[in-house]
Design a protein around this nucleic acid. Sequence first.
DNA 1: GTGCTTGCAAACGTTTTGCAGACTC
DNA 2: GAGTCTGCAAAACGTTTGCAAGCAC
Lengths: 152, 152
Amino acid sequence: MRREPAADLGQASNPTDAEALLRDYGCRATRSRVAVLEALLSHDGPIGAAELTELAQAREPSIHEATVYRTIGVLSELGLVNHVHAGHGPSLVRLATNNDLVAVCQDCGKIADVPAAAVAPLIDAVKEDSGFVLEPGHFALEAVCATCLKLR
Amino acid sequence: MRREPAADLGQASNPTDAEALLRDYGCRATRSRVAVLEALLSHDGPIGAAELTELAQAREPSIHEATVYRTIGVLSELGLVNHVHAGHGPSLVRLATNNDLVAVCQDCGKIADVPAAAVAPLIDAVKEDSGFVLEPGHFALEAVCATCLKLR
DNA sequence: GTGCTTGCAAACGTTTTGCAGACTC
DNA sequence: GAGTCTGCAAAACGTTTGCAAGCAC
């Protein structure tokens, strides 16, 4: 069922491309799915399910929260998006275009990108040490941003 | 409010020490708190709130789930324990005796310890790159263990 | 027309909260 | 005795599910 992400996923910001992308992945291009994928393509960086629902509803008002969750599940199975678990809060969704990690500030929720290259040594060390293979796209690094650090 | 963990926390596995530890941290040593801390001290590695409640109830049957959560909060503020957020599932609790990370298998839930030293380069890289200071004790590394990897 | 998808509503599991009574210091 | 802590019950939170109607192919 899983496919490699389309090479041009990052450029598919043209709204009409969302529909084509879904079809290309052998998936029914319903209004709801197109709206969710468009919202995701037009948004920069990871996004929570609630916010994604709002963005999708701006395009397709009748879309329901449960449908957004189901769509995320479908897109995730297709390999188009990743869930990112971010500590206390709700989990985030993002396009599977890059392998960067996400760092989330525990105090203000600000998000920073961590280049995949910075994590490669850790991945190797863990694999050698315990045989576990990390899934870097699926978890967030909990942190404190520079601004909040000063306020502590 | 926060204090450094007592240097001998790791050795305080004698049940009566839990009470002394709480007093030492300027905290009321109630039956419930002693039971939770004893359970935590006698358990090896991270533990979920539900399992911790069971262990605590073995010592103090009337203890309530909500009290366990409140106690975790208190111990956490004192710097005695860390919450560890572990992806989909419930979060884990563990003694703040070491700075090792936890890797959790997404398929079977198995837990592996990742030495703090393996994460140090990542911490430095992130700090340099974005100014975010990672809190390595607070998140789990999502992974797939060697056994489950073969089954995929 | 077939069968996958949707909206709705209700359930889920974990965690948090408000309250009155019980307990520690 | 003062003030914190507890058990209980109920709510909150994000997420998932069952169902019948609706839609894409």
